[in-house]
Amino acid sequence: MKKIFLILLCLGIFSCKGDQPEEVNNNETTTDSLNTEDLIPEALKTNKAVVLNLEEANKLVELPLNCLDTEYPNKLGQTLENKEAMGEPHELHPAFYGCFDWHSSVHAHWSLVSLIKRFPDVEKKEAIRESLKNSLTAENIQAEIEYFKREHSDSYERTYGWAWLLKLAEELKTWEDPLGQELSKNLQPLSDLIVQKYMEFLPKLNYPIRVGEHTNTAFGLAFAYDYAKTTEHTELLELVKKRAQEFYLRDDNCPVSWEPSGYDFLSPCLAEIDIMRRVLPKNAFSLWMDDFMPQLKNEDFQMEVGEVSDRTDGKLVHLDGLNFSRAWAFYGLANQYPESFGHLKSLANEHVSYSFPNLVGDTYEGGHWLGSFALYALQESGNKPKD
Rank of each mutant, 00 (worst) to 15 (best):
E350Y: 04
L347Y: 06
S267K: 06
L296M: 13
D310T: 00
L316H: 15
D313A: 09
P294A: 07
S309N: 10
K297I: 09
K315W: 15
T312E: 12
R326E: 02
P268Y: 06
S346C: 00
D291L: 11
A334L: 06
M293Q: 12
L344G: 03
G366A: 11
R278W: 09
D274E: 11
G342C: 02
F292R: 13
L319Q: 14
S325L: 11
L359W: 08
G342D: 03
F285S: 08
Q302S: 07
R326N: 07
G332Y: 10
V352W: 01
F341D: 03
H318I: 08
M276G: 11
L347K: 14
D274G: 00
N349G: 01
H351A: 01
D300T: 07
E307C: 04
P281E: 14
I275T: 04
C269M: 11
K345Y: 13
E304I: 04
V308H: 07
S340I: 00
G371R: 06
G314S: 06
V352G: 00
Q302P: 01
G371I: 01
F292E: 07
F292T: 00
F265T: 03
W369R: 15
T312M: 13
Y337V: 01
F356H: 14
A348D: 02
K282N: 09
E272S: 12
V279P: 05
E272M: 09
P338F: 11
Q302D: 08
N298M: 08
R278Y: 14
A327F: 06
Q295Y: 06
L316D: 11
G314W: 15
T312L: 12
N349L: 04
F301D: 00
V305W: 05
L375S: 04
S340F: 15
P268L: 12
Y364E: 10
S309D: 11
L370H: 08
H318S: 12
Q302F: 13
P294L: 08
K282H: 14
R311N: 13
V308P: 09
D291W: 15
Y263L: 03
Y337S: 01
A329E: 04
F356P: 03
N283I: 05
D264Q: 09
D290E: 13
V308R: 14
K297Y: 13
N283H: 12
F330T: 01
F285G: 00
F330N: 01
S346F: 04
V308T: 09
G367I: 04
I273D: 06
W288F: 13
D264M: 06
L322S: 09
F330Y: 15
L316F: 13
V279Q: 12
E272P: 02
F301K: 11
S372D: 05
V305Q: 12
S325V: 06
V305H: 10
T312D: 11
E272A: 10
S346M: 04
E350M: 04
V279C: 09
H351M: 02
S309A: 08
K282W: 15
L370K: 15
E350L: 04
G361I: 03
L370T: 02
G366F: 10
A329D: 08
G262K: 14
Q302H: 14
Y263C: 01
M303T: 00
Q295C: 05
N283Q: 13
N298R: 13
N349M: 03
I275M: 13
C269G: 03
L266T: 01
